[in-house]
C-alpha cells in the first residue's frame, strides 16, 4: 500500500486513542472533584496535566473550568479532544476512499459534534454525558473498523497506532500517580488513598477489570502490576505491547520487507521486558526509570516503523 495511506491510518488511529484518553481522564477527574474538598483541586489538576503529558504547557489557572475548556476545546492544545478529533478526521479524510464509508461517516459526525458543542453546553449540562459520548463514539468507530474493514495491511497500521498510543498513555498515567503509589506502599492506606486509586483505575477504565482479578482490595503494588504487566487487560502496557508486536509482524509479512526486523525487534524487546518483569523488582528499584524506559521504547518503535515503511531513504530503497 502507499506509504502515505499507511501513515494516515496510523495517525488517525493514534489521535483517536489520544482523544479517548483525554475524555476519560477528564471525565473521571471532574467527577472526583465533586466529592473532594476544593483545597486539593490544584494538585489534582496538576496531576491531570501530567497524565496527559502536558507538563510543559501551563495554563494560567489550574481550575476545573479553565482546564476542561482547555482540554476539550482548545484547538492548539495538543491533547485537547477537539485538536485530536480534528487531526484524526483530517487523516481519515486523506484516505477516505480506502476505508469503509461508515468509518469516515462516524469520525466525521463525531468531529462535528465536538466542534459544534460549546463550553457552556458541557459545563452547564452534564459534562459526563458529553465526555462519555465522545468515548462511546470512538468505541463505535473501532467496532466499525474491526467489523467492516478488511484486516489487511492498513488495518494493522491502525492497530499499531492505537496500541503504541495506549501503551504511552497508560505509562503516563502510572507516572503521574507513581510517587503517591510508591509512598503509600509502606503505610496503611486511608480513605483518601483509596479514593485516588479508584480514580486512577477509572482513568483507564480498569476498575472493574482489576476487581475481577484482585477483588476490590486496592493495593498500590497490585494496581501497578495490573496496569503495567497484566497480559489480558486490554489497557495495560503489556497487552498493548503484545498487540503492537503482532500487528508489526503482520505488516512485515504483508510487505515482505526484510528490513522490518528493526521495528519488530524493538517491539519484541518491549514485550519481553514487560513479560519477564516482576512488580516487586520494579518497585524495589525505580518505577519512574522503568516507565521512562517504556516511553523511550515506544518512541523508538514509532520512529523505526516510520523509517521502514513511510519515510525510508530513497537511496537505500533503490539499493535493495
Amino acid at each position: 500500500m502507499l506509504s502515505r495511506v499507511a501513515d494516515s491510518l496510523y495517525w488517525m488511529s493514534r489521535y483517536l486513542e489520544r482523544a479517548e484518553h483525554t475524555a476519560q481522564v477528564l471525565d473521571v477527574n471532574l467527577q472526583r472533584m465533586l466529592e473532594q474538598a476544593p483545597r486539593h483541586a490544584a494538585r489534582r489538576w496538576e496531576r491531570v496535566m501530567k497524565t496527559l503529558r502536558l507538563v510543559k504547557t501551563k495554563p494560567e489557572k489550574l481550575d476545573a473550568f479553565t482546564l476542561t475548556s482547555e482540554l476539550t476545546f482548545n484547538p492548539s492544545t495538543r491533547e485537547s479532544i477537539l485538536a485530536c478529533m480534528a487531526a484524526a478526521r483530517e487523516n481519515a479524510r486523506q484516505v477516505r476512499e480506502q476505508i469503509p464509508s461508515e468509518m469516515w461517516e462516524k469520525i466525521n459526525k463525531l468531529y462535528l459534534r465536538v466542534k459544534s458543542a460549546t463550553m457552556e453546553d458541557v459545563w452547564r449540562g452534564e459534562s459526563h454525558e458529553f465526555l462519555s459520548g465522545v468515548r462511546e463514539g470512538i468505541h463505535l468507530f473501532h467496532g466499525i473498523t474491526d467489523g467492516l474493514m478488511n484486516h489487511n495491511e492498513g488495518w494493522h497500521f491502525i492497530q499499531v497506532g492505537r496500541f503504541i498510543e495506549r501503551a504511552q498513555s497508560t505509562a503516563a498515567l502510572l507516572g503521574a500517580y507513581g510517587p503517591d503509589l510508591v509512598n503509600a506502599a509502606d503505610r496503611i492506606a486511608d480513605v483518601r488513598d483509596y479514593f485516588e486509586w479508584v480514580g486512577m483505575l477509572r482513568s483507564c477504565m480498569a476498575f472493574e477489570a482489576y476487581c475481577k482479578v484482585y477483588t476490590a482490595d486496592l493495593r498500590p503494588e497490585r494496581i501497578t502490576e495490573f496496569l503495567l504487566l497484566n497480559a489480558e487487560f486490554p489497557r495495560s502496557v503489556h497487552f498493548s505491547a503484545i498487540m503492537v508486536q503482532s500487528a508489526l509482524n503482520a505488516i512485515a509479512e504483508f510487505t515482505g520487507t526484510k528490513k522490518a526486523s528493526r521495528a519488530n525487534r524493538l517491539a519484541g524487546r518491549l514485550r519481553s521486558m514487560l513479560g519477564f518483569s516482576q512488580i516487586d523488582e520494579i518497585l524495589g528499584e525505580d518505577l519512574n526509570t522503568y516507565l521512562d524506559d517504556i516511553q523511550h521504547h515506544c518512541a523508538q518503535i514509532h520512529v523505526a516503523t516510520h523509517q521502514i515503511y513511510i519515510s525510508y531513504p530513497i537511496e537505500s530503497a533503490l539499493a535493495s
Partner: peptide, 17 residues
C-alpha cells in the same frame, strides 16, 4: 507519493519503491 530517480518514476509504498 511519487518521486524520480534516473528519469524513472517510482511510487513510495510500504513495501518499497
Amino acid at each position: 507519493d511519487l518521486l524520480l530517480h534516473d528519469n524513472v518514476v517510482y511510487m513510495r509504498t510500504t513495501a518499497g519503491l
